[in-house]
Amino acid sequence: MATNHDPTLPDPTTPGPVTAQPAKILYCRCAYAKVIAPEVKDEVLQRLTRSGATFEAVPDLCEMSARRDPALKRLAAEDEIKIAACYPRAVKWLFSAAQAPLPKDTVEILNMRVDSAGTVVERLLQAYSNGEKPS
C-alpha cells in the first residue's frame, strides 16, 4: 500500500512482534468548542497520521475529565508523554480533576491554541525525528 512514509521514522509496514509499546502521543481534538483553529488541529492530525507514529486521539479532554475516564490514568502513567491540546495549566488540572495527575517532569504539553501546527508537530515527533524509537 502506498504511503508517504518518512524514512527517518520507524517503518510502519514491517510486521513486528506485538509488544508492550504504549502510546506516547496524545492528541485532543477539542471537538465540542471552537477555541482551537480548525486549520491547526487538522494539520496536526494529518501530519500525525502520516508520521507512522503510534498515537491516541481523543475528542475532548474536558469531557473525559468530567467523566473521570480511566483512560486518563493510563495515559498519565506513561513514562513520557506528549500532549497536543490547549494551555498546559488547563490540561494539568483537567487530568488532576480526573484523579490522574500528570507526572511533573516527563510530560510535554503543546498548545494548539497559540502555537502553529508546524511547531506542535515538530515537538510531538521530536523523538522520532532524532531517529530515536520510543521504547
Binding site: P10, D11, P12, T13, T14, P15, G16, P17, V18, T19, A20, Q21, P22, A23, R29, A31, L45, L48, T49, G52, A53, T54, F55, E56, A57, V58, P59, D60, E63, M64, P70, A71, K73, R74, A77
Partner: peptide, 20 residues
C-alpha cells in the same frame, strides 16, 4: 473524533497498552 469517539492508532510493533 468529530463524532465523539476516541481513536487509538495502533501501528507496527505496538499494541493498545494496558487497556483497563
Amino acid at each position: 473524533l468529530d463524532k465523539g469517539y476516541a481513536v487509538s492508532v495502533i501501528r507496527s510493533d505496538s499494541r493498545l497498552g494496558p487497556v483497563l
